[in-house]
Design a protein around this nucleic acid. Structure first.
Length: 684
RNA sequence: GCCGAGGUAGCUCAGUUGGCUAGAGCAGCCGCCUUGUAAGCGGCAGGUCAGGGGUUCGAAUCCCCUCCUCGGCUCCA
């Protein structure tokens, strides 16, 4: 056929020969700007497909709209990283003959590839693999896409059991075509590849002389050749279960990262270093905020006086706010009879995460440490008959819970075995649930703003999982809709996580980004169908009948300990003044001025400012240094001239020094700063 | 729980192929020194080298077990 292709990009249109590749067309259209890794192809106004630059355009009568994928975009980096994963797998194949390959997708900030090898990789292996990758990249092998029939793919990868399994999983419909799998794609369905029966795509690394060096089942797309990966680095290896399932073999995973430039890679590696420096365990030790001695046990921490003050500010804020928003405080025990946990279903559904029972001598009763506060709050609710008139009832507590987390998952205060939830359970009528949930989300927003985290970075609504054990279809649908309605009312963008809800109800998870761009899951708002049923709770409606209330569970900090750790890392230990354990340090330039230093401290202390005087016999330089390394927000240097004029020299932790500030003025300033809960995250 | 890497003084780290009473800096304590914005000087004290077992003439060092920490997997606030 002697047809021609019509290609368009922006204002320009060209007629080209069939078989023209994407990059050739883009050149003809003069549509290439900057560094690109792939094209986008759209026909008939349909969805755009990412397209290999060297892949011939589809043969179609309709005009093709072409676009580019820039290297310095999330989509572009994913393509770079995916290509780097292939390059790494090729290097591993070279160095470890007989290695079996599983999957190697791009992930946030990098990529990984899983291998089945005779022995785990060592750090030296990673160096060797990376060196081999550099060599291979110099060979300028091209990535060549090929569509193969299912049978041919099975034959080609007969020695690769995981690839065979992937093909079979695609057959079974267990997985649909993903980045790791060259299974049937939307393109095939649209006839762009004119397949004859089920097909898979294979990407071949082809040497300059045309010899095929390595091939992998893959959906693509990829960069045109391996030397087009500007910067990459292997980071670490770790075990990972095949298909993420514990009953499957453990493979060896290598993590790496790749970027559009050396500069971007360096910036990323520096961010990782920075994150390491800010680790809450390290800063907790250095600033004497917390301690986790081995004698205490894994996943448990002690808040030292300085950390306890920070925590108290957090708790004071949430206590005040919950009261102001109509919550009712309760206190509940740390243990309860095992029967309570049987009724609640925790023993059945959560038993593995509960500490073992405490059996009493007479055997009459066994007790359990609480992994959640909900049953207690239910008992608070059922302590008397409830009327529809008093709903919503909002029961609130800073409740410390204990969960026997598996040994490998414990991680400082971010994943602990004992932690405190700012836990509330709201019992309300059907017509109140949207209001209540929306209020919770707004409450969380206030929290993030107050603690310097800005707006939520992500709101995810998780819907009914397969394993759901409570509620009925209508109930779930209504509850999911209520969550959506509530979030929409707040105006926050959200995404749906289908099937990710808890077994007892759907939930909203809210995330926030810290000062160095890391995202943390903090707030959770969940609807619980399970406990109201199990405890058969009710209220008396206007009709005189019993009705089942909705039960909304919410924890805004999530866990006080986790949030505390996020605060430490986000502020890099340099808390805003209102949170800082020590808000002001008074440094006399010499012992003669201790008396005035004490006067200054007394004036501040009278306004509830947390202030210390450095009465050591260190030199002035050493005292300044000590105040700086302790990250005290304000250091006041006082000597003869200050004592005489009743002023202070102010040296903030960040910002410029100011001399001859009247003591009264400084007190007023710092009191206002604290009262307003000013933060300074932008330059933390 | 699984895979890997680790555990030397309160902290950060040295410690050679197994070989003298295991070292340093910081922090601590004692003393000296005392006026201007990130470390003044000297001394003292501090370790059952995570714990237990083994190999050896001899173990921080080699082997085994346990505990703990870190990075992942799975799970999760």
């Amino acid at each position: 056929m002697n047809r021609s292709l019509t290609v368009r990009s922006g204002e320009s249109t060209e007629q080209l020969e069939p078989g023209t590749t994407a990059v050739q067309a883009l050149k003809a259209l003069e549509a290439i700007r900057g560094q690109i890794v792939a094209a986008t192809v759209r026909t008939d106004g349909g969805e755009p497909h990412v397209w290999d630059l060297d892949r011939p355009l589809p043969t179609t009568e309709a005009p093709i709209d072409l676009g580019v994928v820039e290297a310095a975009s999330e989509e572009g980096r994913a393509i770079l990283r995916h290509s780097t994963a292939h390059l790494m797998a090729q290097a591993v194949t070279d160095l470890f003959p007989g290695a079996k390959w599983a999957i190697g997708p791009p992930i946030e900030d990098g990529f990984y590839y899983d291998f089945d090898v005779a022995r785990p990789f060592t750090p030296e292996d990673l160096e060797a693999i990376e060196a081999r990758m550099v060599e291979l990249a110099r060979e300028k092998q091209r990535f060549v896409r090929e569509v193969v029939a299912r049978e041919d793919a099975l034959e080609e990868f007969a020695e690769q059991p995981y690839k065979v399994e992937i093909i079979e999983l695609v057959d079974a419909g267990t997985i649909v075509s993903s980045v790791d799998v060259g299974g049937p794609t939307a393109e095939d369905e649209e006839g762009l590849d004119a397949p004859d029966g089920p097909t898979f795509t294979v990407y071949r690394n082809v040497r300059v002389d045309g010899e095929v060096a390595w091939s992998d089942l893959c959906r693509g797309p990829h960069v045109p050749s391996v030397d087009r990966i500007p910067a990459f680095k292997l980071l670490r290896s770790a075990g990972a279960y095949w298909r993420g399932r514990e009953d499957q073999p453990m493979l060896q995973r290598i993590y790496g990262t790749a970027w559009e430039s050396k500069k971007a890679l360096t910036a990323h590696l520096e961010m990782l270093e920075e994150a390491k420096k800010r680790d809450h365990r390290k800063l907790g030790r250095e600033l004497e905020l917390t301690t986790s001695p081995d004698e205490l046990g894994p996943g448990l921490s002690i808040f030292l006086p300085a950390g306890a003050i920070v925590r108290q500010q957090m708790e004071d804020w949430i206590r005040h706010e919950t009261l102001a928003r109509g919550y009712q405080p309760v206190y509940t025990p740390h243990i309860a009879k095992e029967d309570l946990w049987r009724i609640s279903g925790h023993l059945e559904n959560y038993g593995e995460l509960m500490y073992p029972g405490m059996d009493l001598d007479d055997g009459a009763a066994a007790y359990r440490l609480k992994p959640m506060n909900c049953p207690f709050h239910i008992l608070a609710f059922t302590s008397r008959t409830r009327s529809y008139r008093e709903l919503p009832v909002r029961i609130s507590e800073l409740g410390t819970v204990y969960r026997y987390e598996r040994s490998g998952v414990v991680n400082g205060m971010l994943r602990a075995r004992g932690f405190t939830q700012d836990d509330s359970h709201i019992f309300c009528r059907d017509d109140q649930v949207v209001d209540e949930v929306a209020d919770c989300v707004e409450f969380a927003r206030d929290l993030y703003r107050t603690f310097g985290l800005g707006e939520p970075s992500r709101v995810a609504i998780s819907t009914r999982p397969e394993k759901s054990m409570a509620g009925n279809d209508e109930g779930w649908a209504a509850a999911e809709q209520a969550l959506v309605d509530a979030v929409e009312r707040t105006g926050l963008p959200y995404e749906l996580d289908p099937g990710e809800g808890a077994f007892y109800g759907p939930k909203i998870d809210i995330h926030a980004k810290d000062a160095i761009g890391r995202e943390w899951q903090l707030t959770t708002v969940q609807i619980d169908f399970n406990l109201p049923e199990r405890f058969d709770i009710s209220y008396i409606g206007a009709d005189g009948d019993k009705h089942r209330p909705y039960m909304v569970h919410r924890a805004l900090f999530g866990s006080i300990e986790r949030f505390f750790a996020v605060m430490v890392e986000s502020f890099n230990g340099a808390f805003p003044t209102w949170l800082a354990p020590e808000q002001v340090r008074v440094v006399p330039v010499a012992a003669d001025f201790l008396a005035y230093a004490d006067e200054v401290a007394t004036a501040l202390r009278a306004q509830q400012v947390r202030v210390e005087v450095d009465a050591s016999d260190d030199t002035l330089g050493a005292k300044i240094r000590s105040a700086q390394t302790s990250k005290v927000p304000h250091t006041l240097v006082v000597g003869g001239s200050e004592a005489e004029a009743r002023t202070v020299a102010v040296r903030p932790y960040r910002g410029d020094q100011r001399k001859d500030v009247a003591l009264e003025d400084f007190v007023t300033e710092v009191v206002a700063e604290i009262a307003e809960r000013r933060t300074h995250l932008e330059d933390a």
